[in-house]
Design a protein around this nucleic acid. Structure first.
Lengths: 192, 192
DNA sequence: TGTGTTTTGTGAATTGTTTCACATTATATC
DNA sequence: GATATAATGTGAAACAATTCACAAAACACA
């Protein structure tokens, strides 16, 4: 069966988030300069991979001199557009019934493009439809359902039960086969 | 730089979670039988991929007859070990100071193997060390730091800021280049 | 019971990602 | 300045995941 195109994240982008978190911590400790292997030590990503990722996002350093922490953070912020403001709406159980009709008004006024959905499973699709009608282009979805959306709307699913079960799965399997055959099925959640 | 082995989830396992969620919903609606394309429609995963995943986990159906929903759910529960009880500890800000010393006692008594860490960044590593000392083998970490753990302990990181930023990144980039060259950098969070 | 149709299950081909290997360049030292 | 060294940056190779394509099996119906 042919499939409509899905937008999938490049792992490299996920790792850029990781590097940034790490760099802000290092900066706090007074570190001013890092090398690809510094980030490797801190994040568990190979130094090769660090450089490859930087290469992909056009981040360059100094041969022999490594990378300037401030500069690196700055470039990453630019990648994430952190230097711009972004309004977003959060739709939770509290305001579900009453204020759904005001949604479009608010979204229009504040030019909101991103929404967080934290409503019960049963209402999630309805809320989503409303949001898309109002021009929302990105959704973080805490409801444990697959939202139906047009191709130009991105949905980022967060399902805490899955996170938990995946860990239980791992722990159980490791106990059972202790490093032998099933290891390739093991789980680490977010893969960096 | 050579890297120690990391445990990474097979995407197929993540998708099994997705299928299960979908199947329980269908069951609620009275559906008794599904085909690979049913699950494809519901989840957005191709039907080829569905069958390939089932094949990997030893799940079989009936040629021409599809899959029995109950049987499928049952097999998946077995994969996740849902039919067994699993105790877990949740360490939040509230009980951080006072009860940390009782942790080992509790973990021992209830044979806990999985912990959820929801403490501030600054305490996360300390708590982790304590947990590992007490025999914890799986951790879900809400603190935005990379925890240092032995190779046989699994850590599943959940970072809500990252989830948010990835969506903002996507929305911004799509606005700018509307479906042209940067599309391969787009983000969909959890990749199914 | 035989024939046509639908669906599974899985090797092979393709596509995507990570690792390797090394040319290139910046810095330090004499 | 010349030389040695340590780091980056990136094609090529290796590895992993997905899609394709089709044989095999089950069902429907005459």
């Amino acid at each position: 069966m042919k499939q409509f195109t899905k937008h999938t994240v490049k792992n490299s982008l996920k790792r850029i988030f990781l590097y940034r978190a790490c760099l802000t911590r290092l900066k706090l400790l007074g570190v001013e300069k890092v090398y690809s292997y510094t980030l490797s030590d801190e994040t568990g990503v190979t130094s090769d991979q660090v450089r490859k990722d930087f290469s992909e996002f056009g981040i360059t350093g100094n041969k022999r001199g490594g990378y300037d922490v401030d500069e690196l953070i700055d470039k990453m912020e630019k990648i994430f557009h952190r230097n711009k403001d972004h309004n977003l709406v959060l739709i939770g159980m509290g305001n579900l019934g009453t204020s759904l009709s005001r949604l479009k008004e608010i979204i229009d006024r504040f030019r909101v493009k991103v929404a967080i959905i934290a409503v019960p499973e049963i209402s999630a699709q309805e809320v989503t439809d409303e949001l898309i009608q109002s021009g929302i282009k990105g959704i973080i979805n805490f409801a444990p359902v697959l939202l139906k959306t047009p191709a130009d709307v991105i949905v980022n699913n967060v399902n805490l039960c899955d996170e938990l079960e995946s860990v239980i799965y791992y722990v159980h399997n490791q106990m059972k086969s202790e490093g032998t055959k099933n290891l390739d099925l093991l789980y680490r959640g977010t893969k960096y």
